[in-house]
């Protein structure tokens, strides 16, 4: 990915992310989230992680945001409510902190020029290579996640059936 393309995408993705946080209407926020996630997947493609990019679009930009929209509509949150706005000190701290972090990153990067990345191994980022890693080096986190998801379902059912 060349620098101008990267910069353009970066500006777009940050703008979309800011819209998610700042827009008063939840529906617009959710839609901006789709844009953010979709643009992020472009970065994944540029990093030769095609499968992750596809999953990002299908799972996050697709399923999860649709779920968000459903919840927003079920709760009937479409009317933008008047909400408390953050005071000047809070905004000042947030902006100051953000600039500080950016400066730190810039300082760290300037001193350590990014070394030439090593050549990618054969088949990097395709499904087979990812699956092989997933079931060898990362088998424990992978299996643990499945237990976590099962327990999360049990917990969700337990909480949802409180009314009964």
């Amino acid at each position: 990915m060349t620098a101008p393309v990267f910069l353009l995408l970066a500006v777009l993705v940050v703008a979309a992310a800011l819209t998610v946080v700042a827009h008063p209407s939840p529906v617009y926020s959710a839609c901006a989230l789709v844009v953010t996630l979709f643009l992020l997947s472009v970065f994944f493609v540029a990093l030769d992680a095609q499968l992750v990019a596809v999953l990002q679009v299908i799972v996050y930009a697709g399923a999860i945001v649709v779920l968000f929209l459903f919840v927003i509509m079920l709760l009937n949150l479409t009317q933008p409510e008047s909400r408390p706005t953050a005071g000047v000190p809070v905004v000042a701290v947030a902006v100051g902190g953000g600039i500080g972090i950016a400066a730190l990153v810039a300082a760290a990067l300037r001193r350590v020029p990014p070394a030439g990345a090593p050549a990618l191994p054969e088949g990097f980022g395709d499904t087979a290579a990812l699956a092989r890693r997933l079931f060898t080096a990362y088998v424990l986190p992978f299996e643990l996640t499945s237990v976590l998801l099962l327990v999360a379902i049990v917990g969700a059912v337990g909480l949802a059936s409180r009314k009964g």
């Binding site: 990362y138 424990l140 986190p141 643990l144 996640t145 237990v147 976590l148 327990v151 999360a152 917990g155 969700a156 337990g158 909480l159």
Partner: peptide, 19 residues
């Protein structure tokens, strides 16, 4: 990775148990 995953696992179950 394991540190984050196990910590989140513990937190998630604690939230539900609390409620």
């Amino acid at each position: 990775l394991m540190a984050y995953l196990s910590l989140e696992f513990a937190s998630l179950t604690s939230y539900v148990l609390t409620g």
